[in-house]
Write a protein that binds this DNA or RNA. Structure first.
Length: 111
DNA sequence: AAGCTGACAGCAG
DNA sequence: CCTGCTGCCAGCT
């Protein structure tokens, strides 16, 4: 797709994440070719709150399945609530069965 | 224009 | 085994 910026690439990938699945920052960064920019992915997520259409950032967690950015959702429990609403079990900010619900863009999407 | 920021990840001690 | 530190890179002030 014709991305004007790195952020839009991230947003695009995140929007491809199906409900009930999650992915990691590193997976997205690696998929975009900038594996070292895993931080940038998270930074893009932080900016996603003011991006339209809204990006399901709650489906993006760190490599261990921890909801590190829940604080960015306004309400700390909102992220967990959204995930559980989609069928993703979350306990103590940790995604349960992370490996099972994990969605790898390079494997599932494969552009 | 220059430096700082950041929801990570990996290696080192 | 667990805690801490640096690296990374694009966007923003």
């Amino acid at each position: 797709m014709e991305n004007d910026s790195f952020y839009e690439k991230v947003y695009w990938v995140v929007r491809q994440i199906p409900a009930g699945r999650v992915t990691s920052y590193g997976a997205i960064a690696g998929f975009l070719g900038t594996k070292g920019s895993s931080r940038m992915v998270g930074y893009a997520m932080g900016n996603s709150v003011k991006v339209f259409p809204p990006v399901p950032a709650h489906r993006v967690v760190n490599r261990i399945g921890l909801l590190t950015g829940k604080q960015r959702f306004g309400s700390p429990h909102l992220m967990q609530q959204l995930l559980e609403s989609e069928g993703v079990l979350v306990d103590d900010d940790q995604v349960q069965n992370f490996k099972t619900v994990f969605w790898d863009p390079a494997q599932e999407l494969e552009i």
